[in-house]
Amino acid sequence: MTQDNIISVRDVHKWYGNYHALRGVSMDVKKREVIVIFGPSGSGKSTFIRTINRLEDHQRGQILVDGIELTHDVRNIEQVRAETGMVFQQFNLFPHLTVLQNITLAPLQVRKWTRQKAEEVAMQLLERVGIPDQAQKFPGQLSGGQQQRVAIARALAMQPKIMLFDEPTSALDPEMIKEVLDVMVELAKSGMTMLVVTHEMGFARAVADRMFFFDQGQIVESGKPDDIFKNPKEERTKLFLSQILAH
């Protein structure tokens, strides 16, 4: 059964100093699955998703990504990172590089592609996220929605097997949320394995295979979107859903 799990997390614990941020989290993700993670602020969603590509280390438990165990071994870490794309709430584009340079940087430096191949792929991706005409601009010259789409293209340029999203639309003005979600829906339908921290329940309904509710560093409840929305088992899930669905 572990064979077709591309991500396998076993009883993971994480402390920040004395603060117990993850308290025994386990999760298996199959290839092509779309996972939505939600829960109150401070519940450990970011911490969890960042342990998957080792932006945070964990102190107990085991994490396997595509069969590679995340330990202190730097080679393993770099291998996992090259196969895992990440999109951040704050975009984190490189402001001193053009859009095209942002996207081609890692393929050139890490994958050692030729410039021609890297730029071809970059242009295809910009086409895919709907902004091929912005290639020569600097990130500071783009709107928030455009920047986040560049960030998605940048992550995709490494041809990752897994995409991690940490609240990708939370920093956006409302009118720009849809353009980013559209790109993510298209990506989900194309068969990408995705872990998405988000409170966009419309997105979850449309494409999520399973949802995980986090609270106080633990997974309180998980299930198919239908079950989670229609009959959540836990009181805390019910309460939280009623709060975010109220508006």
Binding site: E78, R81, A82, N92, M158
Partner: peptide
């Protein structure tokens, strides 16, 4: 230089040295 710049570079698979010379130092 904000932490997000290091994180984005690392998440792309850039090594520590590449992150320094290509992302952090130029800025």
């Amino acid at each position: 230089i904000p932490r997000g710049q290091y994180e984005a570079a690392h998440a792309l698979g850039l090594s520590g040295a590449q992150t320094m010379t290509l992302i952090v130092l130029p800025q």
